[in-house]
Amino acid sequence: MILTVTLNPTLDKFYWVDRLPLSLERVEEEILIRAKKSASSAGGKGINVSIFLACMGVDTVAMGFLAGHTGQIILRDVLARGVTANFVWIEGENRTNVTIIERGKEYHPVKIHEEGPPVPARAVEMFLRKYRRMLKRAEYVVLAGALPPGIPTGFYRELVGLANEAGVRGVVHAGLGPLREAMQAKPYFIKPDVREEAEVGGLPARTEEEIIQAGKHAVKQGVEICLISHHVTGDILVTPQGVWDLEARVPLSRYKNLVGADDALVAGVLYRLVEGDSVLDAVRFGMAAAIASAEVEPKLCLVKAAIEQEMQQVVVHRREGG
């Protein structure tokens, strides 16, 4: 079983529009933008990973905090996708994250992200009890996404530590601060994204050379798989066995919705790892899953044949070792 933790779930709301005003600052009157189409689905990085895995037939349980009417909608969608849900209910309302996608500029969406409800200490305690129990049944645990108010930056470090004690492989798919903290507990697999924050585990990661050094540093600290996204179509994989470049030869114009693509990447890697693939093959599949997801309007591409087709577009280049 693969356990996923989404501490700050979201209802992802997408609007597709023909055209956005060139500059919102210049407008003096109210703006009405008519959406050609809209869609919504349960989200948050961990939930996206679970949805992908469940669709591929992998037993997966999603955990985190749900609140209010939005929480009910998220739960309903999660259950409908075949994911087992084990959430803690809190007061307030889960966040809604809005993405506006303009025709012809699909790779530059406009996003509005809410903060999410604060999590009280009592709910954290309840979560930890559930988490410890679920670890007994898990093979991997994915700790993914933003931390809601009330959760300390070092929370993922604690969760990775508990996973290690239980013999469960920890996967951290989160932003700068939470990831840096979590790395101290030696997760098995991390997926930093240096496009947003040019740093991995406290080391600068602006150039390819810096990225590789930061990846090697993470591996020295005990990470087994360090997969670093450094541009839309390229990742660098660093493991104890070597360093590889992965490049997707797909023009940006083919992308329709980039939200969720990096979650498909993590989910794709895990899916193939539990199937018994090598790390390199698993990462190739993960990257294909990310491309396939970016090429469709729904957040995730859940058609295995389409993902396998995309594997032809993924070029792997060995830099060191292997």
Binding site: L79, G82, V83, T84, A85
Partner: peptide
């Protein structure tokens, strides 16, 4: 079944 593990201890 609903795969909902909402429960208490």
């Amino acid at each position: 079944m609903r795969r909902d593990l909402s429960s208490v201890e």
